[in-house]
């Protein structure tokens, strides 16, 4: 499905984690257009408009990417690197998702250009704080 105006792109291999996150977001009307992809390969295809997503208008960039670090096949860090080294895509804020604050991969992610991180589960509190920190205030505003 080709989505227009993607607001949040969640790249998370654990469907339950993803469901909880989306529920939280939608419940608090933090985002309307949320796309969930389950692996890194698909994410890259989507972002760059290739593979299964060939033909997508990629100029409409997602407002924020929530990127799980630990994923099979193409890992979160690989996705991060791909995004942040692309001149067009690197402007997209990338928030990595981690299961603990002491995750050593957080550091690696920052080095690759990650903008912030959220410790799972993604809930109202930690998500809104993060996007506020990133300056994406408009996402927090309650919308009908």
């Amino acid at each position: 499905m080709i989505h227009q105006e993607v607001e949040v792109l969640i790249v998370e291999d654990n469907d339950e984690d993803a469901e909880l996150a989306i529920r939280a977001l939608k419940k608090h009307r933090l985002a309307n257009n949320v796309v969930h992809l389950s692996d890194g390969e698909q994410a890259l295809d989507f972002i760059f408009g290739r593979g299964n997503y060939l033909g997508r208008v990629i100029s409409q960039l997602p407002k924020v990417i929530l990127l799980d670090i630990k994923m099979p096949k193409v890992s979160g860090l690989q996705v991060l690197q791909a995004v942040k080294s692309d001149p067009q895509m690197k402007v997209i804020p990338v928030v990595i998702l981690t299961s603990s604050e002491e995750d050593p991969d957080i550091r690696k992610a920052y080095e690759l250009g990650a903008n912030s991180y959220i410790v799972k589960p993604v809930e109202f509190d930690n998500f809104s704080k993060t996007v506020a920190d990133l300056g994406l205030y408009w996402m927090v505003v309650n919308r009908i």
């Binding site: 654990n14 339950e16 984690d17 909880l20 529920r23 299961s99």
Partner: peptide, 21 residues
């Protein structure tokens, strides 16, 4: 220990999350 904690945490997150729902 990292992977243990990571893997152990995931199901707990689910339990807790869905329970909350």
């Amino acid at each position: 220990s990292y992977s243990v904690s990571h893997d152990l945490r995931a199901p707990i997150r689910s339990i807790h999350g869905y329970g909350n729902i």
